[in-house]
């Protein structure tokens, strides 16, 4: 079988779509992070509105409910002077039988320049990108805002940005990802991002029921005992636990989950004294994280949100610069 062309980069190695962190060269990730730096400075009125996407239409195409991610994409696009259109497709045409690709064709006919896509099925943004390529509409860019369990690349990037902001030299860091890795697109993007940038050690901590098969082959060390896994770490990345995970046979109860895998003050003390705690939000206090930790001095959860806007601005401006 032939190796299919890189779905995210154009012939000159520039970013054409952002579908997944996986497979992106280190330079591309660093370029995005560097490009985000100036966007974090929103102190002066001038820097609140930049003309980089003036005249461009950004469509937020969300097939799954989301408030935070959609809002931050919207803010990012607006700060770049783009026209932003929000489509809540969960309550729209697909319920009337329109297919995903029909929806995309329609938005292209409305002269969309960028599609920010969230979808419940892994690979949906890839499908859209392949469709655009097959129909020679390379001027339209796709940004994956979360697909199934597969990827949430801007989240992975903003987490990377946050860690770089607080810790600088990644090669010396020990990072632990804690929680429902099995269902988490965030975890997958974090794992790729951290490994591409060469983090010193990457751990995942979860019960066996919440780890996907052969996860260690993604370049992580697996721990089932949270106390052992947190020993000496510099960065703790908590994952959100969806309430519906209690319905099946994956976990007995939120209480028991919290007992073994919730981040509490005493478990946090096993990490390095200057450890930081990240969470992609929205948090379930008392399920995966204790309020004392979430609101404590180690948490960088709110800065993550702010950095998220800068990183999304960086991604959009790089895509716009790549052009057709």
């Amino acid at each position: 079988m032939p190796i299919s062309e890189h779905p995210q980069l154009d012939r000159d190695g520039r970013l054409r779509h952002l579908l997944s962190i996986e497979g992106l060269p280190r330079e591309v990730l660093v370029r995005i992070l560097d490009a985000a730096e100036p966007f974090t400075d929103t102190g002066s009125p001038d820097s609140r509105k930049l003309p980089l996407l003036r005249g461009k239409s950004v469509f937020n195409l969300f097939f799954e409910n989301s408030t935070r991610t959609r809002t931050t994409f919207e803010i990012a696009a607006k700060r770049l002077s783009a026209d932003v259109i929000n489509l809540n497709v969960a309550a729209s045409s697909t319920n009337k039988g329109e297919t995903l690709l029909d929806t995309v064709d329609n938005l292209c006919a409305m002269h969309a320049d960028m599609l920010v896509v969230r979808h419940a099925a892994s690979g949906a943004p890839h499908l859209i990108a392949q469709h655009l390529s097959a129909t020679r509409r390379d001027q339209v860019h796709v940004i994956n805002a979360g697909d199934g369990r597969h990827a949430h690349p801007t989240q992975g990037l903003l987490d990377l940005y946050t860690i770089r902001h607080y810790k600088r030299d990644l090669s010396r860091l020990c990072v632990a990802i804690v929680g429902d890795v099995l269902h988490s697109r965030v975890a997958r993007s974090q794992i790729h991002a951290l490994n591409i940038l060469g983090v010193g050690e990457l751990r995942v901590i979860a019960p066996k029921t919440l780890l996907p098969a052969e996860v260690e082959r993604m370049g992580v060390r697996v721990f089932h005992d949270m106390r052992a896994g947190l020993a000496g770490v510099d960065v703790i990345m908590m994952l959100r636990l969806q309430n519906e995970r209690m319905a099946g046979a994956l976990l007995p109860s939120a209480q028991e989950y919290f007992k073994f895998f919730g981040l509490t003050q005493d478990k946090l003390e096993l990490a390095r004294p200057d450890a930081i705690v990240l969470h992609p939000g929205p948090m379930n206090r008392g399920v995966e994280i204790d309020s004392a930790v979430a609101d404590g001095p180690h948490a960088v959860i709110l800065p993550q949100v702010t950095f998220g806007i800068a990183v999304r601005m960086a991604v959009m401006s790089l895509l716009a610069a790549a052009g057709a």
Partner: peptide, 15 residues
């Protein structure tokens, strides 16, 4: 197949 590829792609596995 419930292996490395499904894990990477975030596809539900069949062991």
């Amino acid at each position: 197949h419930d292996g490395e590829v499904a894990t990477r792609l975030g596809l539900a596995g069949i062991p």
